[in-house]
């Protein structure tokens, strides 16, 4: 079949049609996947909240409060949980930039006095088989944070003089994990001290 000639009009028209068709197709796919994607994000969040908090009736406000962290630029998100009218704890969505493959996000649950209830990894790119052992399903590394109050529990790996046993061969990921928890703790305590409602 003879090719269309490369005249200016032909070229402009072709590129216009190709990009228009592509744009249309993408808009359609975006619209159909928007809802499932939000659903997935919501489920991830709810699973994490359920894991790091004691039994609760409601999160108030449900979408969390953004709080500027003690150190770092981007805000952390606080999810205060209530059973009846009684505050039972706060889940803090926190992050670290010291991961082996950049930033990762974890969720840390604190009881009102600052004791860590539990932690959950939300999103990470750490090396499979090494750094990803910080996920609860893969090792008991996160368990050592459970029930500890950072006031008398050093939030850094033993190598750095803290109380956390690092994951074998994944000291960087372990340090980053401590950094994220530490950021959450400091911000949480500071907020409680400043203007507890």
């Amino acid at each position: 079949m003879a090719k269309k000639e490369s005249t200016l009009l032909n070229m402009v028209l072709t590129l216009f049609l190709v990009t228009a068709a592509a744009g249309l197709a993408l808009a359609l796919v975006y619209n159909t996947t928007l809802e499932p994607i939000q659903q997935v994000e919501k489920e991830v969040l709810e699973t994490a909240l359920g894991r790091v908090l004691p039994e609760f009736d409601k999160i108030e406000p449900p979408s969390g409060i953004e709080v500027a962290p003690e150190n770092g630029k981007d805000p952390l998100v606080f999810y205060p949980a209530y059973k009846g009218e009684e505050p039972v704890g706060t889940a803090v969505k926190t992050y670290t930039d010291q991961g082996f493959s950049g930033r990762f996000w974890i969720m840390v649950g604190f009881s009102p006095d600052g004791t860590i209830i539990n932690t959950a990894v939300l999103e990470h790119k750490e090396t499979p088989g090494l750094g990803d052992k910080m996920e609860t399903e893969k090792s008991d590394f996160p368990d050592q944070f459970k029930g500890e109050n950072p006031a008398d529990f050093g939030l850094s790996v033993t190598k750095d003089g803290g109380d956390v046993d690092a994951i074998t061969a994944a000291t960087i990921s372990s340090r980053a994990f401590c950094d994220a928890v530490d950021r959450a703790y400091k911000t949480f305590m500071n907020k409680n001290k400043g203007g507890a409602k």
Binding site: M1, A2, E5, S6, N10, T14, V18, A22, L26
Partner: peptide
């Protein structure tokens, strides 16, 4: 499918748009 209606000189950008989509 579109090979015969794409002018030769803009085939690469067209392919890239298709692939990127």
């Amino acid at each position: 499918l579109v090979k015969s209606v794409i002018p030769n000189k803009v085939r690469i950008p067209s392919f890239i748009v298709i692939i990127a989509s």
